[in-house]
């Protein structure tokens, strides 16, 4: 079923909370709307339920990748070019550990950043997306209801009732 977006823009946190309450009063649940803010707000301030994320997988995968690459690199180069220096063993484990440590962390960090971008559902190079209002970065709070086509007027009304400064947007999404 086609779902559509409607965005109510609120001037401050109190009116946004009122908007959220009136959305709930109109029978919408936390699944039906999303908050857009210009800065982080305390969790659950407008009734949203943060979904669990899988971010922790990324640094672990990155760390393991880095560790294996470093093991390959350190052990491989020493074995491929077996010259004795300073009477040290060809596989000089303490020296290898230093490089394996660094590369594990390097890849863990790179993967974490990739994970954050991926889990944030980014990147989208074309702009902020279909329904958006630049006032959000001016401190306004947006409540974006994504509901079935026939409930759009109800959502629009609920947003309006909460005291929205403006209600914008009505674009079809898949």
């Amino acid at each position: 079923m086609a779902r559509q977006n409607v965005l109510g823009v609120y001037a401050d946190a109190d009116s946004a909370a009122a908007g959220a309450r009136s959305l709930r009063a109109a029978g919408f649940t936390g699944e039906d709307y999303e908050v857009l803010t210009g800065n982080p707000y305390p969790e659950g301030a407008f009734g949203d339920h943060p979904k669990r994320n899988k971010l922790f997988v990324f640094p672990i995968a990155g760390g393991l990748t880095g560790f294996s690459l470093a093991l390959l690199f350190t052990a491989g180069t020493q074995a491929a070019f077996p010259l004795v220096t300073g009477g040290k063993p060809i596989l000089a484990i303490p020296a290898m550990m230093i490089i394996m440590y660094e590369m594990s962390l390097l890849f863990a960090m790179i993967f974490t950043v990739m994970g954050v971008i991926f889990e944030s559902r980014l990147p989208r190079f074309s702009g902020a997306g279909p329904v958006y209002d630049p006032r959000i970065t001016l401190g306004y709070i947006g409540l974006l209801a994504t509901v079935e086509e026939e409930r759009i007027p109800a959502a629009r009304q609920a947003l309006q009732d909460g005291g929205a400064a403006d209600v914008v947007g009505e674009t079809t999404t898949a």
Partner: peptide
């Protein structure tokens, strides 16, 4: 800006990050 919107999920991940 990679299409940043400021959803709770994005802010949450920014914080965790």
């Amino acid at each position: 800006a990679l299409g940043w919107r400021g959803t709770p999920r994005q802010w949450q991940l920014q914080g965790i990050f």
